[in-house]
Write a protein that binds this DNA or RNA. Structure first.
Lengths: 210, 210
DNA sequence: ATATGTTTCAAACGGCTGTTTGAATTAATG
DNA sequence: CATTAATTCAAACAGCCGTTTGAAACATAT
């Protein structure tokens, strides 16, 4: 068993796929970076596509090991929400030298391919469930599931903006100011306070006029 | 002057670039769809890259003509915000048969290329300014510009989620429920109400404890 | 009608792509 | 040690890519 070759390929593939995306990445560059022969990918994985799926699998496996999301159960829901947001932002932005694991998952989120379903089931889904349970602590139990989903989407939407539209943000308000805003805990605090207002308003009045 | 050939090429290019992105689109398919000779692109535009920039230019020009955003000045700021959000959501999602103009701009927002700067200057920037002026009507004039920017980002972040992460959303909560949520005015109302709470809370207390 | 400039066309060029091949090398088994 | 299986390797394959070429077709003006 030459398992080391396989993992060397997957690691190199993860890097290249993360940097360039599936289509733009070339098997030649992957093999060169892994220092293996050009035919190795097809021999060990069948084709480029299957290698990609393996890379995404490893990405969210190791990503989960890196920093598990454990929120103390005894905290008030408001602080749990902050923990959640802060963790999510740090996961996406904070790495001084971002590993390819996160980068690859983000790519899959932005433009889902075959590997997307599994990513949702084993990575995004569980995190979303945690957020949902936090929200459920803060709203009346009579609130419909759909409305709770909308609240969760509003929270993650604010977070994802800073990951996926950073270049636009920089162009909009200028590099300097954008970078000065770009502190994880500062952004997390803003998003949390902003969201708490929206969530808690549904705790009292079910509908407002508009 | 065979200007008609140039516009035929740009139209076809817009479609293909919107569907596949710059790298994945091929000049052969563009020419085939435009029903022009293969060499026409290089003759009229120089190369593929320059054609792409022309296509993006036309995209936001015609996109602007389609539905200009004019918000009645006499409305209260809360309703202006709703108008803005509803317009933005409709722009991104509502088209029964979405034109390539929007699709191409969205692609450029997700992964900016050379054409991005101009897109921000002539399309995204003006819209963002409108949102900023609406927010300024609702918060104390003493609030720093940075804080107002954060508020604006929170609003657009919620909107963009439904455009850029729709496949993930479907996988998370199921196709059926996601599609049932997917009504522009319903989503716009939710986002607006949610955001109004966050914005207005800054109007009274500058800081909350966390 | 002739000459000039513009636009179209089929064909080819060089380069990069994922994949395959068959021999050479290494590891494992009797 | 001999034999078989698993792995590596250099080379080539077939196909698509953006771009170029030089001749043909067309339009315009003298």
């Amino acid at each position: 068993m030459s398992e080391i070759t396989k993992t060397r390929i997957i690691d190199a593939a993860g890097e290249v796929f993360a940097e360039k995306g599936f289509e733009q990445a070339t098997v030649r560059e992957i093999c060169k970076r892994a220092d293996v022969n050009l035919a190795s990918i097809n021999y060990h994985f069948g084709d480029k596509q299957k290698l990609y799926i393996e890379a995404v699998k490893r990405a969210h496996c190791e990503g989960e090991e890196d920093e598990p999301l454990l929120i103390p159960a005894e905290l008030p829901a408001e602080r749990k929400l902050y923990y959640f947001i802060e963790h999510m932002m740090a996961d996406m932005l904070d790495r001084e030298s971002p590993t390819w694991h996160v980068e690859l998952m983000m790519r899959e989120m932005a433009r889902p391919t075959l590997a997307c379903t599994e990513l949702v089931q084993s990575y995004i889904g569980p995190k979303f469930s945690i957020l949902m349970s936090i929200i459920e602590e803060m709203v009346p139990s009579t609130l419909t599931l759909s409305k709770k989903h909308l609240l969760a989407f509003s929270v993650v939407g604010q977070c994802l903006l800073y990951r996926f539209h950073r270049p636009i943000g920089k162009l909009l308000i200028g590099d300097d100011e954008f970078e000065s805003l770009f502190d994880v805990s500062y952004l997390a605090r803003h998003i949390c306070e902003f969201s708490l207002q929206g969530i808690q308003s549904l705790s009292v009045s079910q509908e407002t006029s508009l």
